[in-house]
Design a protein around this nucleic acid. Structure first.
Length: 344
DNA sequence: TAGACGTGGTC
DNA sequence: TGACCAAGTCT
């Protein structure tokens, strides 16, 4: 084993044996394999999502759908509703598609290449599942690993272009023995020690090998390109009520909040759209105030229009207002619904 | 390659 | 308060 590799993997894995987090989808350190269903489900949920947000969702999914076969048999609407609040809803659509592919095939693919072909499984997730569930020496690079590696080797190329150099060095230091523990150790280290703002270098098992630490300014790595400003958009939410129920619709299957239940809404545009695309002719009353919600790529300010239906239209589902929590609304609509219920 | 795609927590 | 950030993927 090359000295460079040993000087990193040995202290890292020793640190992991002592300081690893215990998480519901994890096997203890030293286990060469783990349950692929749990590993896959957790990795999908963890994409761009914090451990704290994932833990209760993971437990709920595992209790309700204890195997990939059970998940494959779920109703789409039930799964989408169960995912509500986690965000990035394409993950939920791909999750059920993936479960059905795996169930039809009889088992998860056991190689990085095979996993990569599954819906919703990209370069990171394929490598993570291959390493953690199947013990493959795959190169696992998420935001934590990228940050640790960029500091360890003082990689100057800004992200995302710098990812190529990062992948190279991570491939060099990934051991054949315990590749899954190595990946999770890098992630735990990035989460607890090699943090974005104020890394705890004095507590780091890799500080002796770290070029970024030696430079005196490890927190400057990885460098990143400036982001574009978020545009402002405006919309109107329609709260149409009849005999204790409110009208909900299903969003189109793709795009923003695709496939999710929602309150009716007009366009989300650069100017307030007023009552455009109101669900039916009704006496709309505008509530005071607005609901603000910030998405990844724009900021949205919603006006709230409330009306009473003359008759039940069949343009959507009439949902009992007292039971709205079980509708599985994305957070932006849950916020708007709460504001309407308070103020109407 | 760059933009679409959610949400909640932190400082 | 707002900008940054999180176990990314798809097109």
């Amino acid at each position: 084993m090359p000295a460079k590799l040993r000087s990193i993997t040995e202290p890292l894995l020793k640190w992991y044996d002592r300081h690893h987090r215990t998480l519901p989808w994890r096997s203890p350190p030293g286990e060469p394999r783990a349950d692929p269903y749990r590993v896959w489900l957790s990795e999908i949920m963890l994409q761009q999502t914090t451990v704290a947000a994932v833990k209760p969702k993971f437990e709920a999914f595992l209790a309700r759908w204890p195997s990939v076969e059970a998940l494959a048999a779920a109703q789409d609407a039930d799964l989408m509703a169960a995912w509500a609040g986690l965000g990035y809803y394409a993950r939920a659509r791909n999750l059920i598609a993936c479960a059905r592919v795996v169930t039809a095939a009889g088992a998860f693919p056991e190689t990085e290449e095979g996993l990569r072909a599954l819906p919703g499984v990209g370069a990171y997730t394929a490598a993570a599942v291959a390493a953690i569930a199947f013990g493959e020496q795959a190169t696992v690079v998420d935001a934590n690993v990228a940050r640790v590696a960029a500091r360890l080797f003082a990689i100057e190329t800004p992200l995302p272009a710098g990812m190529a150099a990062i992948r190279e060095v991570v491939a060099e230091i990934t051991p054949a023995d315990r590749p899954g523990d190595f990946a999770q150790a890098m992630m735990d280290l990035g989460s607890a020690v090699c943090t974005p703002r104020a890394p705890a270098c004095l507590a780091c098992p890799l500080s002796a090998a770290c070029v970024g630490y030696a430079s005196g300014a490890p927190e400057t790595y990885p460098t990143k390109l400036a982001k574009a400003a978020k545009p402002q958009r405006y919309g109107t939410i329609f709260w149409l009520e009849d005999r204790g129920a409110v009208l909900l619709v299903r969003r189109p299957p793709k795009g923003l909040l695709g496939g999710m239940r929602a309150l009716p809404t007009g366009p989300w545009a650069a100017e307030p759209p007023g009552l455009a695309n109101a669900p039916e002719a009704a006496e709309w009353r505008m509530l005071d105030g607005t609901v603000v919600h910030v998405f990844t790529h724009f900021r949205l300010e919603l006006a709230l229009a409330v009306g009473t239906a003359q008759r039940h239209s069949n343009a959507g589902e009439w949902w009992p207002i007292a039971d709205l929590d079980s509708a599985g609304l994305p957070t932006v609509f849950a916020k708007a619904a709460a504001a309407c219920r308070r103020a109407r």
